[in-house]
Design a protein around this nucleic acid. Structure first.
Lengths: 126, 126
DNA sequence: TCGGATCGCTTACAACTGTAATCGCAACCC
DNA sequence: GGGTTGCGATTACAGTTGTAAGCGATCCGA
């Protein structure tokens, strides 16, 4: 049983996780190549974030010569799940339908969204 | 047009906002009464949070004798909107339907949720 | 083999957060 | 009117986050 991710992943750390979820394992330099550019981070910053994630047990390190290869430990779906639930709990009293209602009302849903959701509903209701 | 809420509201501050959204205006002591208990905060802590919110322009203060009455400036729906969008953007590439799909898959939607969403869809599709 | 490039690790440091104690002043009570 | 109480404002202080520089070890190319 792996530790159930007690430590919270910060926003900057999350960007690093995204890189690893997209493609792993990666070296620190590779991660920096993929995200440092868009975020404007130096290699040093990426390294710090990787260390912190490593301490938190969110990524795994495998020695490869003198460097490390980093891989995610926490699955993306797991992270996304806890974060979504946090939001739903905090802002919508735990009711996912309220979140949906809000998005609908805020016109944050376009036709494509609606169609997809409709399809999913069909699926779920079968 | 009111200022578009640049300053971010932290989680502890959000709890205070909830109290004010539920019932406003309130004095600091009243806010503390309503939330200090469940959150285990002292009056001093609530006062600090109110000051910070005031600085950020998220609450408004009206003098009432020797004390202040606090009221929310930012509307709850506005806050909820920006926070929801943040999450959708960050975790689902801006596609709300992906969030929905995730919730569905994670079985975070019960029958009641599904029915409500179905009803909302009907409404939207009219 | 030696110098530069590259690693991870350690340290830095300011901003933001959570949590509060303290202070000075205004007001209310007797 | 002098003590007490209740207020907002100021100050405190540790932990987290964002952002990075520096250090000592190691590897690679010349």
């Amino acid at each position: 049983m792996n530790t159930p991710q007690t430590e919270r992943i910060s926003e900057a750390e999350h960007a690093v996780m995204e890189a690893l979820w997209a493609d792993a394992p990666l070296t620190a330099a590779q991660v920096a190549d993929r995200i440092g550019e868009t975020r404007g981070w130096s290699l040093a910053t990426v390294k710090t974030l990787l260390s912190r994630l490593s301490q938190k047990g969110a990524v795994d390190t495998a020695p490869d010569g003198r460097r490390f290869l980093y891989s995610p430990v926490v699955a993306r779906s797991e992270y996304v799940g806890t974060e979504s639930r946090r939001l739903v709990d905090r802002l919508f009293g735990g009711r996912a339908s309220s979140l949906f209602a809000h998005l609908a009302e805020a016109e944050a849903l376009d036709d494509k969204d609606l169609s997809e959701i409709e399809a999913l509903l069909q699926e779920l209701r079968k």
